[in-house]
Amino acid sequence: MLEKQTDPTSPMHWRGDMQADYMYTNGVAGDRFFRHLMEKDTFLATKCKKCGKVLFPARLYCEDCFQEISESDWLEVPATGTVRVFTVATINAHGKKMEEPKIIALIDIDKTDGALLGIIKTKDLKRDFCGVKVKAVFKPKEKREGTLKDILYFEEKI
C-alpha cells in the first residue's frame, strides 16, 4: 500500500495554503531601542542593577536575575563591536549558488554583554574575520524606519 510518490499531484488531494499575516510589536524595550536608532548612529543597552550585565539589545528585564530595568539603567553604547565568529554563505535558501557570497557574523557589541547577528561587507572574501573590529553602517537618517533593517551592514573599523 505504501508507495513513494515522485509527483505530489498524483495522489488525489485538496490544495490548501496557510495564509496568516502578522504585525509584531517591538515591545516596550524594543520601542525605545529602535526609536533611538532612527535618530542616532549608536545603540541603546540596559544595565542590570543586580548582576551588572549590560543587556544588548536593550531589554525590559534581566533574564538571569529577573530584575526589572528602570529609567536610570539605560545607556548609550557605540555601534561597534568585535566579530566573535563568522561564516560565508554561498548557497541561497532555494539551493542555488549566490551571485556574491555573503559574510554573516556574530558581533559582540562594545561596552555590552550582548551580541548581534550582522552582515559584513568587504572586498576581501578570503579574510579570517574572527576578532576583527567592525562598525555598523546605517541607512541615511531620513530613510530609517525603526527596524533592524536600518543597519545596512557592518564593515571593518579602521
Binding site: 510589536t25 515591545g27 516596550v28
Partner: peptide, 23 residues
C-alpha cells in the same frame, strides 16, 4: 505594546512577588 515575553515577565514577576520568592 508589550511583546509576548514582556507580558510573561510582568505576570511572572507579580506571582514571584506574591509568593515572596525569586527566580
Amino acid at each position: 505594546k508589550e511583546t509576548g515575553k514582556e507580558l510573561s515577565f510582568l505576570a511572572a514577576k507579580m506571582a514571584l512577588e506574591e509568593a515572596g520568592i525569586q527566580k
